[in-house]
Every structure is written in structure tokens, then in C-alpha cells.
């Protein structure tokens, strides 16, 4: 109970802090929204009558809900030695990056809402409420997986001064194989099974595909299976990387 109250306390504090930076958050939201909007414009022109406007608007929502900046919010604390402050506190260190992550996502949704409404009004996208509800657990799992993935990569800061580059590689792979550069079903047939199995689609395109109605029931169940498997795998990876990184953490001196 205390743990939950503490996490809620951290999230509230970080939400208020990020709310005071709305100008900066606006630029971040614009950055997150631009690629789905470009995808929307390109693919609806290239392949009309495929309900791609619904897919890319759903993808924009997913991006705002799963965004993770741990290479800025967490790696920096390792480089500056500020992680020492977190290590002195009697709760898991992950609370801090997690609370910052959730606060940033809430701010992204708040500030991105007018953009979403505009996109819905000015495109022919239509959604089935039942499918949107079916997509919600996938959205939550995508958010968890994106956090674990980015958090694990940001912990490369224990070993290298180029954690931003490491996370950048992850972001590029997610863009290419997560259903943003192109929906998974438009990848070459030989690559599609890999695209469906890899974690990138589970982090990004899968919830959008459900909401846009482009998947059959068996594909939805299989997709959920992949998401749960990747969440478990990355939770294990995060724990191992954290233990190894902490032994290496060298905030030597004052």
C-alpha cells in the first residue's frame, strides 16, 4: 500500500513539474506526431481504400501513450552522478524513471489532444468502439514494453558515454519494424512473420492494427501472446542489466 502511495506521489510531482514545461512538451509532442502524420499522408495516397487513415491516427495515439525518454531522464543521472541520490532512497530506483515516464506520457496526451481531434475531424478515419476497447490492453502492454526496452538500452550509460546513440538504434529499429515506416502487412511476405514476432511491432503497431480493424481474431490472440512474452523477456533483461550496471557504477569522489 505504501509502495502504491509512493509511486502515485512521484507521478503527481513529476506531472506538475512537466506541466510547467508545456512549451517544451509541445515540441516533443510535435516530434512524436510528425512521422505518423507523414505516414498517413503517404500511404493513404499510395494505397487508398485500405483504412490506413484509421491505422495511422491510432498509431499517433499509441506513440503519445508509449513514448519513452529514459536516455534523457535516466542516462543523464548516471553520467552526472545524480543516480547516487536515487540509490540512497529506500525504494526501487526504477520508481523515478517510471514516474517521470508516466508523467511525460500524461502530458503528451493532454497537449496532443487537440491534434488528435483535428486529425479525426479532417480525415475519413472511423473506429469501431468494440475494437478500440479490444486494443486497450495491447496499448497498456505496448507502453510497458516500450518503457522496459528504452530503460534497458538507457542503462548502457553504465558502460558507454553514447547511451543516446544506443537508444537511437532502438528507436530506428522500432520505426522500421514497428509498423510506422510501413504497416507490417505491407512488408515483403518473407519478412512479415519476423515483423510480427519481433518486439518492435508489439511496442507500436500492434495496438493500432487492432483499433483499425486490420487483424483477425487469431492474429489478435497471437499478437497478445508475443506482447506478453516480450514483456517477460525484457523485464528479465532489465533486472540483469541493472544488477551488472550497479556493480559498475563509479560515482567516484564528490
Amino acid at each position: 500500500m505504501h509502495t502504491i502511495r509512493l509511486l502515485i506521489g512521484w507521478i503527481k510531482q513529476d506531472f506538475v513539474r512537466w506541466l510547467s514545461q508545456r512549451g517544451f512538451t509541445l515540441t516533443l509532442v510535435a516530434n512524436q506526431a510528425i512521422t505518423p502524420l507523414i505516414g498517413l499522408a503517404v500511404w493513404t495516397s499510395a494505397v487508398p481504400n485500405q483504412n490506413l487513415s484509421a491505422y495511422y491516427i491510432a498509431l499517433m495515439v499509441v506513440r503519445l501513450c508509449v513514448v519513452s525518454y529514459e536516455h534523457h531522464t535516466f542516462s543523464g543521472r548516471i553520467y552526472e552522478g545524480e543516480l547516487a541520490d536515487d540509490l540512497l532512497q529506500p525504494h526501487p530506483v526504477v520508481f523515478r524513471p517510471l514516474s517521470v515516464n508516466l508523467a511525460i506520457r500524461a502530458n503528451h496526451l493532454l497537449i496532443g489532444l487537440p491534434l488528435l481531434i483535428g486529425a479525426l475531424l479532417f480525415t475519413p478515419a472511423r473506429f469501431d468502439v468494440a475494437l478500440v476497447v479490444t486494443a486497450l490492453p495491447a496499448l497498456v502492454l505496448a507502453g510497458v514494453l516500450n518503457f522496459l526496452f528504452t530503460y534497458a538500452l538507457s542503462m548502457s550509460a553504465f558502460w558507454t558515454e553514447r547511451a543516446h546513440g544506443v537508444v537511437g538504434i532502438g528507436a530506428t529499429l522500432t520505426f522500421l519494424l514497428g509498423g510506422e515506416a510501413a504497416p507490417i502487412r505491407f512488408l515483403p511476405e518473407a519478412i512479415q512473420p519476423f515483423g510480427e514476432a519481433l518486439p518492435f511491432r508489439a511496442m507500436l503497431g500492434f495496438p493500432a492494427e487492432i483499433a483499425a480493424g486490420t487483424l483477425s481474431q487469431s492474429q489478435i490472440i497471437a499478437g497478445y501472446g508475443w506482447q506478453v512474452m516480450w514483456v517477460c523477456a525484457f523485464a528479465f533483461i532489465v533486472l540483469q542489466v541493472w544488477r551488472a550496471g550497479l556493480r559498475r557504477f563509479a560515482a567516484i569522489g564528490g
Partner: peptide, 17 residues
């Protein structure tokens, strides 16, 4: 400076392994 004072304190407070 650089003698190891703060490093020792950090080991005793659990910050460093």
C-alpha cells in the same frame, strides 16, 4: 582531495559496490 574520503562514504552508504 582525491584521497578516497567520499568514495569510502559512498561505499558505506550503499551507493557504490
Amino acid at each position: 582531495n582525491g584521497a578516497g574520503k567520499t568514495t569510502t562514504l559512498k561505499m558505506l552508504s550503499g551507493v557504490l559496490y
